[in-house]
Simulated scan of single mutants.
Amino acid sequence: MTRPPTAAQRRVIDAADPVTGRLRGTEAQLAALVGRGLAFRHPRPPHDCFLTPAGHRIREAAPEPPRAAEAAQESAGAGGVFAARVGGEEEPAAGPSRAREVHSAWQGLLELRRMTNPDGAADRPCGWERTHLVRAAALALEAAGHRPAGPDGD
């Protein structure tokens, strides 16, 4: 297990943008986070730094005793694939990580529209949406901020 981030690094991680994970800090702080694998530097100018999944986990985790942190690290490695909430499934954890996942999935869907529509329009459904109506509608609703109904309709 690696050692936890310093107080200054923790402040930079905690202040990261909640959706994109964009970091603001001194060059030394950012370089240290990149060196520890908690952030990466974007390849295109202005070469901003963003949190890696490990950095997001540190930001979302409450300070824990060392033994509990080790157990959490082991269980965090079993991440899954994003799935739109269509009903009937277990309620995934809400919060900043879900907001990031929904935002990323919606941006991916818009890019899919742009790439597959002949004129490059992102305002019309693409072929994938037509063949996966329920998932596409669930993603669109969740991206717009609507909370899915529970199994009892509330």
Rank of each mutant, 00 (worst) to 15 (best):
R59P: 04
R59L: 02
R59M: 04
E60Q: 11
E60A: 13
E60C: 08
E60F: 05
A61D: 07
A61W: 01
A61L: 04
A61N: 05
A62C: 01
A62P: 00
A62R: 06
P63Y: 03
P63H: 03
E64Q: 09
E64S: 04
E64Y: 00
E64I: 01
E64M: 06
P65M: 06
P66M: 04
P66F: 06
P66Y: 05
P66C: 04
R67C: 05
A68D: 12
A68K: 09
A68F: 07
A69D: 04
E70L: 15
E70Q: 15
E70V: 15
A71T: 03
A72D: 08
A72Q: 10
A72G: 06
Q73P: 00
E74W: 10
S75C: 05
S75P: 00
S75T: 12
A76M: 07
A76R: 14
G77Q: 15
A78V: 09
A78F: 10
A78Q: 13
G80T: 10
G80A: 12
V81R: 14
F82M: 04
A84P: 00
A84R: 00
R85Q: 13
R85K: 05
R85D: 11
V86E: 06
V86P: 00
G87C: 05
G87A: 05
G88N: 08
G88P: 06
E89H: 02
E89M: 02
E91H: 14
E91Y: 11
P92I: 08
P92V: 11
P92G: 08
